[in-house]
Computed example of a mutant assay.
Amino acid sequence: MLSLLKRYRTLLTVGLLLLYPFGAFLTTGRRGRDPNFVDRVVIGLTAPLQRGLIAVIDGAKSAVFGYIDLREVRQENEQMRAENLQLRSAVQVLGETRAENERLRGLLAYAEAVPGPEIAARVIGVNPVAKLLSVRINRGESDGVYRGMSVVTPDGIVGQVVRTTGGWADVALVTDAQSRVGVRVQRSRARGTAAGQGKGPLRLENTLRTEDIQEGDAIITSGTDGVYPPGLVVGKVTHLEKTEHGMFLGGNIEPAVDTTRLEEVLVRGSPFGALVQGPAAGGAGGER
């Protein structure tokens, strides 16, 4: 028994000091009296402990409520972050839809302004084989698309249909190395051929060196190759090569249409309607 008292004497002393005010209150609290010497000693000894306990309790309470508030803030932040992502996704979709509508309006306006039937189509594939630069469109024979028909956009020519089935068709691009387009200079009416090089600008060929051609001249289709109607935009001259000898001059033509960014196109009938459904060559025959 004595060993227990010695072991827990500090705890018992503190407990008695804490219980003494409570007992005094119960016995004399209703009558009321001034604290005596013992009361003052007990209060002086227990006050720091009480303040410490109150501080610990207040700190724990603040920590608990702070954690609850922080958790709620985190949940609100996560919810706001999710809503922000949804809004950004919606804005992106709306922006893409608006851009598509603008392209389609331009395509429709061009189709209405140009005489003759046109078939609107969407690019659905790109040929990965380097031997033939082509794209696939979602219109085919069932829609009235046949080999040899020209493909254009409001900005200029794109290429010619080289293969078609019931629901789709392949279009060889003007930039393909086998492509040849009969062209003329819009300003001076000089004739020539725009040849694809596989990448980069088109090559100006078969133009007499005595012709009036300048850098920056607009190049349009001449309508003599049996594929493209006359007057369609091909591009502009960006470089000329005039030699002292020879019959022809060379140069580069920057295409009006960036064929790497095609999304919607128009398919137009060949100037020679009777040949539209017949076999077509790999590229349009240029002028000779």
Rank of each mutant, 00 (worst) to 15 (best):
E83C: 00
N84T: 08
L85V: 13
L85S: 05
L85E: 13
L85M: 10
V91W: 06
Q92C: 00
Q92P: 00
Q92N: 10
V93K: 14
L94H: 14
L94C: 01
L94S: 15
G95A: 15
E96S: 09
T97S: 11
R98P: 01
R98D: 09
R98E: 10
E100F: 09
N101H: 11
E102S: 11
E102N: 10
R103P: 05
L104N: 00
R105M: 13
R105A: 15
R105G: 00
G106C: 02
G106R: 15
L107P: 02
L107W: 08
L108E: 14
L108Y: 09
A109F: 07
A109H: 10
A109L: 12
Y110L: 05
A113W: 05
A113I: 09
V114R: 11
V114W: 06
P115D: 12
G116A: 06
E118C: 07
E118R: 08
E118Y: 14
R122Y: 01
R122P: 04
V123K: 04
G125K: 07
V126W: 06
N127I: 05
N127T: 05
N127V: 02
V129L: 12
V129W: 08
A130Y: 09
A130Q: 11
A130E: 14
L132M: 11
L133C: 06
V135H: 02
I137E: 00
I137Y: 05
N138G: 00
N138E: 04
E141A: 15
S142L: 13
G144D: 04
G144T: 06
Y146N: 09
G148C: 08
M149F: 13
S150M: 12
S150N: 03
S150Q: 10
S150E: 12
S150K: 07
V151Y: 00
T153L: 06
P154C: 08
D155A: 15
D155F: 02
G156K: 07
G156T: 01
G156I: 04
I157R: 01
V158Q: 02
Q160Y: 02
V162I: 14
V162Y: 04
R163Q: 13
R163G: 08
T165D: 15
T165F: 10
G166C: 01
G166S: 11
G166P: 04
G166W: 03
G167W: 11
W168A: 12
